[in-house]
Amino acid sequence: MTFQYEIFWIVVSFLLTVMVLSYLLGDNVFFRIAAHLFIGVTSGYVVLLIINEIILPYMLNPLITGTWIDRLWLGIPILLILLLIISQIKKFTWIGSLPLAYLAGLAAAVAVGGAVFGTLIPQSRTIIDSFDPAIVNVTSGQGWVNILDAVVMLIGVIGTLSFFHFGRKRNPETDADLSKRPMIFEGLSKIGQVFIGITLGAVFAGIFSSTLLALIDRILIIGQFITNLIGSV
């Protein structure tokens, strides 16, 4: 029974893999069936996941088994949920602005706080620390390499920031070509382009590497299935 169960799912996975790979021949009905199947399964799975992982443990269980204080606290999210549901009625669309404002404010606070204190400040400090003599000379004989590394990093940072500088000239009367940025930004942005190009190239290489590994894994599964099928016969 277990063997048949496993065989069934191996066959299903093999067929779905082949159906997806059939896209190489162009858009076809098999690829569409597989795509719709994945979308449908994912939707159903998400619904069950939300019910099991969020609604039941965080809302229904405390409502049923919790104290009166717990239930009072739950009144806040339940009220927000009700407002969102009511806002689906055209006449009461404005009611939804309250829970949406709460969500937007919360998301902004979390995201901005994380970006500033979790990325911007630590990364800026890293750039500054790279010129710290104590760090540069930490390895004897490697000092010039560290300095070069720090200089390249600084040039890359300034160049990349310059590339995304979209300010305009302050004195358009004296400068003929308004479409161009100031000369210093133009020059730095050219350098920044090189760094951005290298970064995007590295990202592309990483994407290709990841997808290649995924393809190898699929081919391996198909090959093992066929090998097992031939072996069993």
């Binding site: 630590p122 990364q123 400090r125 890293t126 990202v203 990483g206 590497s209 990841s210 590994l213």
Partner: peptide, 25 residues
């Protein structure tokens, strides 16, 4: 992480926020 995520996460390793990182084959 995967190879596709690794290049953009390197600064977090350089800044010391991440102790180590492995990716790919």
């Amino acid at each position: 992480v995967t190879d596709q995520a690794m290049p953009m996460l390197m600064p977090y390793f350089d800044s010391g926020q991440v102790k180590g990182m492995v990716s790919g084959l």
